[in-house]
Amino acid sequence: MINNFTKLEPRTLQTVNWAVTVGSVFICLLILPMRLPGMELLSVSPNWLLIWVVAWSVKRTGFEGAIAGLVLGLIQDGMTYPDPTHAVSLAVVGFLTARLQKQRYIREDFISISLIVFGMAILAATITAIQFSWHSPAASTEMANRTLGEIWTNHQRIALSSAILSSLWAPAVYYPLNRWWEMVETVVQPQQNKLKNPSF
């Protein structure tokens, strides 16, 4: 099946590539409200959008990672509450994952991706908890009800369970997406090089 795609025109392949990317985001969004057996620990589910952002940013630049985090964060804001925004934590995760220079320091396999996701999930939960504590004495009615103690007790539970679950589920998102992007790169890159240095 992948061979069929390699025969496509580069432009068509790029379009299909974008469709696959957007489709994978959409699937992640659809899984968010779902609680299937094995997807819940202390009533916390994996952070699918964070896994996607990590999978996207691992082989891209910091800017691309941050933009992806921003976009997914804005969408998640719409699906829950925009205050405090999810865009900050996901953008930071995207940027840092891209800056890890994984190829240089860590061997590429599922374990390392899981490790990155584990760390990033804890980081994301911490950023959100800081956002909550920052706002907690403010006038915003819905957030003012959370006391600092509650926020940080919740943070422990959320950070640990979401980190464990997300790192276990990370390969399910990373593996197919990575295969696809690698394939697209192998097809598009030589052709682009050919276009850049045409041999007359």
């Binding site: 959409f26 969004l29 659809l30 409200p33 779902m34 933009i67 921003l70 976009v71 997914l72 804005l74 969408i75 804001d77 719409g78 699906m79 925009p82």
Partner: peptide
């Protein structure tokens, strides 16, 4: 990038209606 950010903002404004309806 602007397309992606734009559609994300649209989804945010509509409270993720598209996602929830599909779900």
């Amino acid at each position: 990038i602007s397309l992606a950010v734009g559609s994300a903002l649209l989804l945010r404004q509509t409270q993720g209606a598209l996602v929830f309806e599909t779900y």
